[in-house]
Amino acid sequence: MQLYTFIDWFFTIGSIIIAILLGIYVNGAACLLGLFFYLIYPFIIEFCYNLLSVKQEISITNMPEIPIIYHDNYNITACGIEKQHPFDSCKYRNVYRQIRQKIKAQHFTPQMLSRGTFLYLGMSKWYLLKICYSAYISTLIELHVFFLPGVFLRSFLLDSMLLATSGSVYGAKLALEKGWAINLSGGYQHASLNRGGGFCIYPDITLVVNYLKKYCNLKKITIIDLDAHQGNGYERDFLNDSSVYIIDFYNSYIYPRDRQAEKAIKCFKHIDKRTTDEQYIEILQRDLEVNLKDDMQFIIYNAGTDIMAGDPLGNCSISASGIKKRDELVFKCARHKKIPILMLLSGGYQKENTFAIGESILQLIT
């Protein structure tokens, strides 16, 4: 990945310099040759990268004391551009520091998985090519950054998400070993194998499911999605897959309102500002008891905190205390059924969410 990034920057800068020199020393029309090269080189390096990269074995040589997955590069700092989006792109560091104040045990630091591994797990080559261009990336992250070089956005934004996606896959392996794991990022629920949206680029939930199927030979996997938004990305990936059982509680009045993806949901509950903590926990407990079967082999828990009161995008009213009770309930059900569980942080768009996440995780692991 470091070599790929270097080549990416090299050809971007090189093509721009060529365009400028041709414009100055030949004529204005000649500079189009450099601009053409600027547009065409991603096809070349993507083809070579896909061709040369191989699938890797996903192994953990040094098992951590606690299955918490975190890397400093999860946090997105793109020269302040990230602040134009309501998402708190550095909440992962703050949650980690909050946990470390009370838990000193060693956590797991993930490495970037190879391109060959992502392709083996189902990523679309065409989609990976499209996100080389900032005009397309802009539509996915909902920021007007189409004027920036694609390599800039990939280096300072997409690579952080790709690393977090790798962390989710490693988290699945840790959960199988330890019984549970928590990735302090991930949960990109609006991304599918061939498209993104809603500030979600890489479909880590789908990739985790495919990892469990292809590497671990699991047959029955459950996704419990309690983010305020519908998980339409992975739902589209598993529309016709009966081996994936989807439980999704969300506010159906807000983004994305994907009616086609809804067909993949086995258990749906609508929540909004009128839903109290007591109602939410009561409904959740009842539905988990009914829908979590003994033969289920793995749980992916998408633990978005945008259901908290005051969140600008979730439009719900669950308290921080309600978040703690929710997470505790999901983990208790998983442990009672002896089903390995992987928790992903997913959405949450206010500073108060960070403290609630940290407190909830601390209650789960202490």
Rank of each mutant, 00 (worst) to 15 (best):
I81K: 02
D88G: 12
T77A: 01
N94H: 11
C79V: 05
I44R: 10
I45L: 09
Y92V: 09
I44Q: 10
S53H: 13
Y74K: 06
I60G: 03
G80W: 05
E46Y: 09
L52H: 13
P67W: 10
C48H: 13
G80I: 08
Q84I: 00
R97C: 05
M63S: 09
M63I: 14
R97Q: 11
I66W: 04
S53W: 14
A78P: 06
R100M: 02
C48Q: 13
S59D: 12
N75F: 03
S89Y: 15
K91M: 02
S53Y: 14
I45K: 13
V95K: 04
I76T: 11
I76D: 05
L52I: 15
D72N: 10
E82W: 04
N94R: 12
V54P: 06
E46G: 07
V95I: 15
N62T: 10
K91N: 00
L51C: 10
P64K: 06
K102F: 00
R93Q: 09
V54R: 15
E65I: 04
Q101W: 08
N50Y: 11
I68R: 08
C90I: 08
C90R: 10
I45P: 03
Q84L: 11
I60T: 07
K102N: 06
N50C: 15
I81T: 04
C90H: 03
I45N: 10
C79D: 04
I81D: 01
N62D: 14
I81Y: 03
V95R: 01
I66N: 03
N73K: 15
K91W: 01
E82F: 04
I45G: 02
P64F: 03
Y96W: 09
R100G: 00
I68E: 03
H85I: 00
I66E: 02
E82T: 08
Y96G: 00
G80K: 09
Q101H: 10
L52R: 14
K91G: 00
F87E: 01
E65M: 07
R100H: 03
